[in-house]
Amino acid sequence: MKYTLRVWRQTGPTATGSLVEYEVDDVTPDMSFLEMLDVLNERLQLAGDAPVAFDHDCREGICGACGVMIDGVAHGPGKATTTCQLHMRQFDPARPIVIEPWRAAPFPVVRDLVVDRSALDRVIEAGGYISTRTGAAPDAHALPVAKPDADTAFEAAACIGCGACVAACPNGSSMLFTAAKTTHLGALPQGQPERFTRARTMVETQDDLGFGGCTLTGECTAVCPKGIPLSTIARLNHDVLTAAMRGD
């Protein structure tokens, strides 16, 4: 099969980019989306052109490295999947595929489809941890966790930090990401001591880094490869407001 791609090409952070059209031949339906880009890059290199830069690592939906805007949808078609989990059978060869990088002021383009998502690391550094004594592993049953809390935390802990929520949000807000982290830690007993401070400092950090404010449009959950629910955001709001009230 033959596909037409319109790919964002940009040589560096300060360069101006544009969409460039490519034709990719010999694509099979069971090729993954990234394999299709690999095919394109082999051709480009053979022809002496620079390959299209894109982020990827595990190629099985667990690392969060990949992620591009495909026809305006973060991680492309397919519910709760990452870009690397897409297959070419999900695309119509008759329609050109538009591929763009995540767009947000705190996510500057490094090259082509690669953006720098370290802003999310800054948010994690601001409070995405628990302070505990290290040493010998505690007994497995030393700290019981109620089943509903464990479920809430586990569901939120599935976030792989891909940044699709920011890319999809019309406000360029990282709220779903931050809420996943604060829910993950704040729902567990180990995360209680820093629960409210954590929520406050992480939100302050994302505000300061230039992310937008959440208006609960729900665009984020719709594209989140891990299906992080919007209810995590309500929980984060609760914790931030509690921190503001208590002066934490």
Partner: peptide
């Protein structure tokens, strides 16, 4: 908040289908 959002997305997408969120959310 609206101005902050505009600053957070200085460059838009070339292709953007209708928002997935509800109509009401988009018209606030």
């Amino acid at each position: 908040l609206a101005r902050r959002s505009a600053r957070a997305r200085p460059v838009g997408y070339a292709k953007r289908p209708r928002a997935q969120g509800g109509y009401a959310a988009r018209t606030m």
